[in-house]
Nucleic acid binder design. Structure first.
Lengths: 340, 340
DNA sequence: GTGAAAGCGCTAACAG
DNA sequence: CTGTTAGCGCTTTCAC
């Protein structure tokens, strides 16, 4: 099987060729200080001539780092992978790591078998740390990794008292802002299309929705809340159901902009005018920001910053292993685009 | 930095605890035959009690495999990552590897720095092989990997005489089928929205388009061909330009279904009736198959099978390193959904 | 069947 | 500044 090509030159051969000791070669390839310039040159020539490439397994074993971190998607439902939310996170994490020597490894953790394999991979020392996206409340993976001493950073938290480092947006406040905006516009029959109810992020956004209604003295009808799964399709289904239950609804708050896009389609197809007749507000801003009319309001979650912060926290975990965990909440922003 | 938790139990400690030699423990964790059942049990208990996890760096170093393969996206333009094409490929490759002990590692190779880092990673022996998606004609990455002795499989080829193992669809034949279908329906003014012209896949689909026109004796107007980049947005732009140049066009052949979706939107917005007034045919079948009306025809590229085949070829490379390269072309299928 | 010993290729600590 | 020396933790002969 494919280990490094047998007969691939080793550090020792480079040393022999350059007429120096192994330590010196090691210093050169690691850009360590304290090597005479001429020696360094000699070694570099030998490296080039031999086409030497360091064996990373040996390097890892000899101590030090794996020089790699994993960004794991723990999603049974693979459809989500294509969602802009994830590609944006991946992009921003990649950007944050671009100028380092750390290789970013995306992994899928869908089934139990994949989970087991990934844990062995990570605990086996092939990565220095792990970033986790979209973790469900009951998922023990973060704890398994963190307890094994692996620096671990979550995107979002699993519950109110998360004991693993995470970055999250102010979901309660963002959702409240959104619904208050609708209320200020005179809407009263406000529906909510939520994410999966077993995710803490969903619970937070739903809470924000309810808090806003309560503060305005609006009765919170349970039938105005429908669960989706963050996909556009679920946004469509949920909205269709809402229209059936409440033909008189005059606004929809969607807990993700992808679902908001689905909601929009259904509302239009049903002959409702947006936003005159019915208003839609979406959480997040990738899909809607690009594709739809300028009359839509969104609560923006700073994805770029989330990715960057995850990386920053991971690097901090490397440097300060004595900190048990850290939490960062990013502020959301209401972006009003009512055509009025 | 985050190597395996210092003080993490080693194989030697397990051996001591179980009262056996290191060799025996090694056999047990590798499920090798030739260990008495009772001994095996004893060792497994010791492993469980200590919470032992094998150090993968040591395992790699001691010979054998990395037990991991990389699936690299060499795309400067990150937008493509979210396209269904890629998520489908990733999913199918993941499925094909699901029952193995091989960890799938997705990597982004966008910039030169990332390319360098990835080559060092792969050549450093951290993976047993590499799968590459969407490689441009001038990209030397596949050669660098293959020459280093790394089993490498491409999705698509860079040119007519690719010297690295690949899986590809019959793009010429598929495109010809598509355009012939339009010709049979009586269309004559057939436009083509292509992918980037520096990609071989684009050249093939364009050739199929031209061959079909030539066979039917239709004049191939150069102005009927516009270059896109496989995104929906480029499909929109290209189609808008085509409508301006040729208000009389009566059919559009899009070199990807994502672009076809964009084309559809623009045609509709321009007041053209599809398919009565103008016909659209898309290559590939993910987006269109799901989201649009049943009156659309597509050339289906078997994505699921492509991913599976890539994995199969990679495993064959592991087992038969004496084969220089292998090529597999998968048949496409015309799926007619004209509402007529 | 099982234990002992010899590395895999590199880093890091220590002499010089 | 640079060479030498110990391992890192595992797999793999090779004896027993």
């Amino acid at each position: 099987m494919g280990k490094q090509r047998p007969g691939s030159p080793t550090l020792e051969e480079v040393a022999a060729r350059a007429g120096v000791g192994r330590g010196t070669v090691s210093r050169v390839i690691n850009n360590a200080a304290g090597v005479k310039d001429s020696t360094r040159r000699t070694v570099q020539r030998a490296i080039a001539e031999l086409g030497y490439v360091p064996n990373l397994a040996a390097r890892s074993l000899a101590g030090r780092r794996a020089d790699a971190v994993a960004l794991a998607m723990t999603e049974r439902d693979w459809r989500l992978f294509g969602e802009p939310f994830f590609s944006e996170i991946v992009r921003s994490v990649g950007d944050a790591l671009a100028d380092t020597s750390v290789q970013l490894l995306l992994t899928l953790v869908r089934t139990d078998a994949e989970r087991k394999r990934f844990v062995e991979y990570a605990r086996g020392g092939r990565v220095d740390g792990v970033l986790l996206m979209s973790v469900r409340a009951e998922d023990r993976l973060p704890d398994m990794l963190a307890e094994a001493g692996l620096p671990t950073v979550l995107l979002g938290r699993r519950s109110g008292d998360e004991r693993v480092t995470y970055v999250d947006a102010d979901n309660v406040g963002g959702a409240r802002d959104a619904v208050e905006h609708l209320l200020r516009a005179g809407r009263r029959r406000i529906a909510a299309v939520t994410g999966p109810l077993d995710m803490y992020v969903t619970q937070c956004r739903l809470r924000g929705y309810r808090e806003a209604l309560a503060a305005a003295g609006v009765d919170p009808l349970p039938t105005l809340v429908v669960e989706g799964d963050f996909t556009e399709d679920s946004g469509r289904r949920a909205t269709a159901e809402l229209l059936e239950r409440h033909p008189d609804l005059d606004a929809v708050f969607a807990a993700s902009d992808t679902m908001a896009a689905g909601a929009l389609g259904v509302l239009r197809a049903a002959g409702r005018r947006v936003p005159e007749d019915v208003a839609v507000i979406g959480f997040d801003d990738f899909t809607l920001a690009r594709h739809t009319e300028p009359s839509l309001t969104t609560v923006r979650q700073p994805l770029e910053e989330i990715g960057r912060t995850m990386v920053r926290l991971l690097l901090e975990e490397f440097e300060q292993p004595e900190v048990a965990w850290r939490h960062v909440i990013l502020r959301t922003r209401l972006v009003v685009r009512d055509s009025a």
